[in-house]
Design a protein around this nucleic acid. Structure first.
Length: 282
DNA sequence: AGTTAACCCTGAGAGC
DNA sequence: TGCTCTCAGGGTTAAC
């Protein structure tokens, strides 16, 4: 279940191999994702140079320079719940739920066989879009809140936004208008580290505690990125490697509090399973 | 406007 | 063994 660290891990795995290379084709095996994959994908990307791979929220943004020097175009890609991108030789046999290949021209001349960026997504909650011009204007990106590592994301921002809100702070934190990239796992972990009960009303938390929460969000995400993400079921990096943050989860999917040893409680908050320590989180 | 729930989908695991 | 049932969840949309 890719959240920000898993998407960032994918980006970092792919970028050095793909940046500066030319896309020579695209093959869509299954266009029925969260939204249909554009049927002119091949024509729109073939011949384009990948200038860089960026990330905004949980979206990967492939910055493409067209061969004729026209307007920059973008592949906007979301991994959904179960998506992953792998960097494999083109002849690698397809597995079930491999839906799209982006073929990359070999760097060392035409003799070498091309490799592909292979999109795999059993549940097909992910999506792939094409966009021209500024990606910030894309409908899916336009209204997103701040990145957790932006200077604009801090306790005062959370506090101000939470005024009058009765919804649970965990739901509030997972809302992409509040801050992007924080899904169920990292919301649970950040709230635990900050000592905040996930079911507390967002509007009834002090600014000081929101500052601790903002710091905890950043710390958890940073550590998870350094560990290559969290692998619970589906996720693996672009070379197929698992994420090692799984072993460092304090509460998510755990039974006992690492601090006090007490039994963790579970509750469904905003239709998401939540884990917390009723003793350490208030 | 804020909040809640349904929905898209498949695989894994539990229970019988 | 094999069936059925439940659960997992990001993010959009609809309804309250």
């Amino acid at each position: 279940m890719p959240e920000l660290p898993e998407v960032e891990t994918t980006r970092r795995g792919l970028a050095p191999r793909v940046s500066g290379s030319v896309l020579i084709g695209a093959t869509v095996y299954e266009p029925r994702l969260r939204w249909p994959v554009p049927d002119d994908l091949r024509e729109r990307v073939a011949g384009c140079t990948v200038r860089a791979i960026h990330r905004r929220a949980k979206y990967l943004l492939f910055e493409l320079l067209p061969p004729d020097g026209g307007e920059t175009r973008w592949i906007v890609l979301h991994l959904g719940m179960s998506g992953s991108l792998r960097w494999v030789p083109e002849e690698t046999p397809r597995r079930t739920h491999d839906h799209v290949d982006l073929a990359v021209a070999p760097a060392q001349g035409p003799a070498k066989a091309p490799w592909v960026i292979r999109y795999h997504d059993p549940r097909r909650f992910g999506s792939l879009h094409l966009h021209s011009g500024d990606p910030a204007t894309h409908p899916l990106l336009r209204d997103l809140g701040p990145e957790p590592f932006d200077a604009t994301f801090h306790g005062a921002w959370l506090y101000r936004r939470a005024r009058g809100r009765r919804a649970a702070v965990k739901t509030f934190l997972m809302d992409a208008h509040t801050v992007v990239g924080v899904g169920n796992i990292y919301a649970s972990e950040a709230l635990y580290r900050a000592g905040v009960r996930p079911d507390r009303a967002a509007g009834r938390i002090s600014q000081a505690r929101y500052q601790r929460l903002a710091d905890a969000v950043r710390a958890v995400l940073l550590e998870a990125i350094e560990a290559g993400g969290t692998t619970l079921r589906d996720f693996s990096g672009s070379s197929g490697e698992p994420g090692y943050f799984t072993q460092r989860l304090d509460v998510y999917s755990q039974t006992h509090c690492p601090a006090c040893g007490g039994a963790l409680r579970t509750a469904v908050i905003g239709q998401r399973n939540s884990y917390f320590c009723a003793h350490c989180q208030r």
